[in-house]
């Protein structure tokens, strides 16, 4: 999987100029790392199609999905991305299993529910299925949000500071879960260097308003998976 962004986008006074091509050859997780407010989340919004670039292009897996010059804009719904935000953004009026089933794209109602339960089991949240999101802890909500994002069989997973609103023990537990669960190509926005070290195979480095390029991650990519796995 390759993702190319060569685009500028304005958000109020702030201007982001992002220019990089990343691949998941080193491993599925690519971190977007840099100080808060440098435009990492905006980049994810561009890739997800929640924002249109003011100039330039975005392509996912070699397929152009946005081009400011021609007006091309593939809708978010048609990009096959799964996304997890800093807050889980679950639908408060639906149960946990319904929230996840909403993302399953094919099958009968019963099949979608079953798939949703499978996804919940994979993130250790099967016991929450019939609860409503407001009764869940922050960590539980993020588990459900991850299950929901994966239930749509995304070709690209976008994680926007998914752990930064959590307390330290929960963050460590979920970091382990992400490390274990993520097999699809993933872009992880974070300003937490421990998270980069624990999860990322390569890194897109940011400074305010622009990208500095892609480099292999020192922690995970350099080490052999056999050494790290128990």
């Amino acid at each position: 999987m390759t993702v190319s962004v060569a685009a500028a986008v304005h958000a109020g006074e702030f201007v982001l100029r992002a220019d990089f091509t990343l691949t998941t050859e080193q491993g599925p997780v690519v971190a977007l790392s840099g100080p808060s407010g440098s435009g990492k989340s905006l980049t994810l919004a561009l890739i997800a199609g929640l924002l249109r670039p003011d100039s330039g292009t975005v392509s996912i897996g070699g397929r152009p999905v946005a081009d400011a010059a021609t007006g091309l804009h593939v809708r978010t719904q048609d990009r096959r991305v799964g996304m997890v935000f800093q807050e889980a953004l679950l639908l408060p009026h639906r149960t946990v299993v319904d929230n996840v089933a909403l993302a399953v794209r094919t099958g009968s109602k019963a099949q979608r529910q079953e798939r949703a339960r499978d996804e919940l089991a994979r993130v250790g949240a099967e016991q929450l299925a019939t609860q409503h999101p407001r009764t869940l802890s922050g960590g539980e909500r993020q588990r459900v949000a991850l299950a929901r994002a994966l239930a749509g069989d995304p070709e690209l997973l976008l994680l926007d500071e998914p752990l930064s609103a959590l307390d330290q023990p929960t963050r460590v537990a979920l970091r382990a879960l992400l490390r274990e669960r993520i097999t699809v190509p993933t872009l992880l926005v974070t300003h937490d260097l421990d998270e980069v070290a624990a999860l990322a195979h390569s890194v897109v480095q940011y400074e305010p308003g622009r990208t500095l390029g892609v480099s292999p991650a020192r922690g995970r990519a350099a080490a052999s998976p056999r050494v790290l796995s128990p």
Partner: peptide, 23 residues
């Protein structure tokens, strides 16, 4: 942002309106 999250799940606009926004 909740509507945006629903779009990333693949819900078409009419389902975002009926299943997310209006509820």
């Amino acid at each position: 942002r909740v509507e945006a999250a629903a779009r990333t799940l693949g819900l078409p606009e009419w389902r975002v309106a009926l299943q997310v926004t209006l509820p």
